[in-house]
C-alpha cells in the first residue's frame, strides 16, 4: 500500500509518530534523491553524505514546511541545494581533478566509446554554473517537467527554458571538443 505525501506529513506532525513518519518519508524518497544527488558528485561516499545532510535538514525544518509546494519538490530543492553547497565546499579539489584529467584528451567525439562520452558529459556538467547545473540535472537526468522544476528551483518557466538551452549548448560543446 502506498502512502501519500499528505499522510506522511500528517504522521510527522504528531510528536509520537514523527520518527515513524520520517522513516516512511525516507523510504519513499531515498532512491530518487540519491540518484539525483549522484549526478552532482561522482562517488558514493559523497552522495551518501549529501543524502544524510539532506535528511537532517528536512528533519530539522519539516515542522516549518507549509506546503506551498509539494513535498517532492521541497525535498528535491533541499537535495539540490545541499549538493551545490557540498561541491562548492570541495570545488578547489574538484577543479584540480578535472584539469588534470583533461590534459591529453583533446580530440573529437567521433569514434569515442559511450563510456568515454558519459565521462565527458559528467565533466562538462561539473563546470557548469550552479544554476545551469541544477537545471540541466533536473531536466536531462530526472526528466522533470518545467512546471515541477519551477517549484523546485523557484524560478520562472521562461528562465528555466533559457537556462536549459544554454546549459545544453555548453555541455555539447565540451563533449564534442575536449
Amino acid at each position: 500500500m502506498t502512502i501519500t505525501d499528505n499522510e506522511i506529513l500528517a504522521k510527522i506532525k504528531l510528536p509520537e509518530e514523527k520518527e515513524e513518519g520520517f522513516r516512511v518519508l525516507m523510504s519513499t524518497y531515498k532512491k530518487q534523491l540519491y540518484y539525483h544527488i549522484r549526478r552532482y558528485v561522482s562517488n558514493h561516499e559523497d552522495a551518501n553524505d549529501i543524502l544524510q545532510n539532506t535528511f537532517l535538514k528536512v528533519w530539522v525544518s519539516i515542522e516549518q514546511f507549509r506546503g506551498d509546494s509539494s513535498l517532492y519538490s521541497w525535498l528535491y530543492r533541499i537535495a539540490s541545494n545541499e549538493s551545490i553547497t557540498y561541491i562548492n565546499k570541495t570545488k578547489k579539489r574538484n577543479e584540480i581533478g578535472i584539469e588534470t584529467q583533461s590534459i591529453g584528451e583533446k580530440g573529437t567525439a567521433d569514434g569515442l566509446h559511450s563510456n568515454d562520452l558519459v565521462e565527458r558529459l559528467e565533466k562538462a556538467i561539473a563546470i557548469l554554473p550552479d544554476k545551469q547545473k541544477q537545471v540541466f540535472i533536473l531536466r536531462y537526468y530526472d526528466e522533470m517537467p518545467y512546471e515541477k522544476m519551477s517549484e523546485v528551483l523557484e524560478t520562472s518557466i521562461g528562465a528555466l527554458k533559457a537556462s536549459y538551452f544554454h546549459a545544453v549548448k555548453k555541455v555539447e560543446q565540451f563533449v564534442l571538443t575536449v
Binding site: Y35, W59, S114, E119, Y140, E172
Partner: peptide, 30 residues
Amino acid sequence: SPILFKIKAEGTDKNIVVPNGYFDSVENQF
C-alpha cells in the same frame, strides 16, 4: 543536441555503482 540525446539513449547510469544493501541501511544511518 543530438549528441546529448544519443548519450542519454545509450544510458548514463553505467558509471553509477551503489554498494550492495546501501538503500536498506539509509534510514538507520540517518
